[in-house]
């Protein structure tokens, strides 16, 4: 076992994948020589050469479109969008092309591509370095959407994503790159060094897509969440004393519905937590599924704690980010409902 940050774990996953399969090609803005603005691709160009890991022009549609062409040729591109906030120019290529290629060609052409993008807030990133656009992808048939919450998962999920035969949107919570974050911005920054999931197995291993993980077992209420909010939810449960079962969904699409329903049927209550804005966010899909599948087990209305329906602000970061106080309040109040 080795101690790794999420950045190191992701880099290790890319290294392992590139070492095992020469069809794995890594590229994006500043992803080559410099090794990425978050260092995830650091050293890969030196090790594998500039045709396996390279810098691209600043053109997100070009990055994804070229990746689709490479995937159709038979390569396994892993492309990087510098921030999830900048994925929109590539949206046409992702929705109309990558997601539909297998279907529209009856399996003749496929798109085994991973689109990595740092996501989420809590870093004073303001409007265009903090967004969580996962719902824009979970609404697209043909995509898979993955959000890891720790280094161990990050590596295993990324390797699964690279080996997956279909396009995967891989969203990396940049707030978790260097350490876990439970929303307590007033405390010193934690590191992955002392966290159990900072232990990362060397070499090749995978964490399956479509499988959730129970991060904290509990009997009173189920918390459905992913990414940074896993740590916030865990903290909120400890601080309120509510015996919450925290489920890290890990893959949003396809969803591990079994894990969700098993937990909610057990607890009878459900709180959904995400950083993304509330209206038509992924939480709405989760709430609808829980209502449909667990209606006779529910003892209280399903609650959602999410980002407000505003663009992500700069100075009001901690009034916006759904921290442990807001999540805790939801846990307490749903127990009284």
């Amino acid at each position: 076992m080795a101690r790794m940050t999420m950045i190191e774990a992701l880099r290790d996953a890319l290294d392992v994948a590139m070492g095992r399969d020469n069809r794995v090609i890594v590229f994006g803005e500043d992803a080559g020589y410099f090794g990425g603005v978050f260092r995830v691709t650091s050293g890969l160009q030196k090790k594998y050469g500039p045709t396996r890991c390279f810098d691209t022009p600043i053109n997100e549609s070009g990055i994804v479109g070229a990746g689709i062409g490479m995937a159709a040729y038979g390569l396994r591109p892993v492309v990087e969008i510098q921030f999830a906030d900048y994925v929109y120019p590539a949206y046409d290529q992702i929705v109309s092309e990558a997601a539909r290629l297998r279907y529209r060609s009856n399996g003749e052409f496929t798109c085994p591509m991973v689109i990595r993008m740092p996501t989420g807030g809590g870093i004073f990133g303001g409007q265009t370095h903090s967004q969580s656009p996962e719902a824009l992808f979970t609404h697209v048939t043909g995509l898979k959407v993955v959000v890891p919450s720790n280094p161990q998962d990050a590596k295993g999920l990324l390797l699964s994503a690279i080996e997956d035969p279909d396009p995967v949107i891989f969203m990396e919570p940049k707030r978790l790159y260097n350490g876990p974050f439970d929303g307590h911005h007033e405390r010193p920054v934690a590191s992955w060094k002392n966290h159990p999931f900072g232990e990362v197995e060397p070499g090749h291993y995978t964490v399956p897509l479509g499988k959730a993980a129970i991060r904290r077992e509990g009997s009173a209420v189920t918390v459905l969440t992913y990414g940074t909010m896993v740590h916030v939810a865990e903290a909120a449960a400890e601080e309120t004393g509510v015996d919450a079962e925290v489920i890290d969904l890990r893959t949003l699409l396809p969803l591990d519905l079994e894990a969700v329903t098993a937990s909610v049927r057990k607890t009878g209550r459900c709180v959904i937590v995400h950083e993304a804005t509330l209206t038509s966010g992924f939480g709405a899909e989760l709430a609808a599924l829980v209502q449909q599948e667990c209606f006779y087990h529910l003892e209280a209305p399903v609650r959602r704690v999410a980002g407000w329906d505003t663009p992500y602000p700069h100075v009001h970061e901690w009034s916006y980010f759904p921290g442990p106080a807001r999540v805790g309040a939801a846990l307490t109040s749903i127990m009284e409902a």
Binding site: G62, G65, A66, G67, I68, G69, A72
Partner: peptide
């Protein structure tokens, strides 16, 4: 159009 370029790059 860009996919063709990517295929050629591959």
């Amino acid at each position: 159009y860009i996919q063709a370029v990517g295929w050629a790059m591959a």
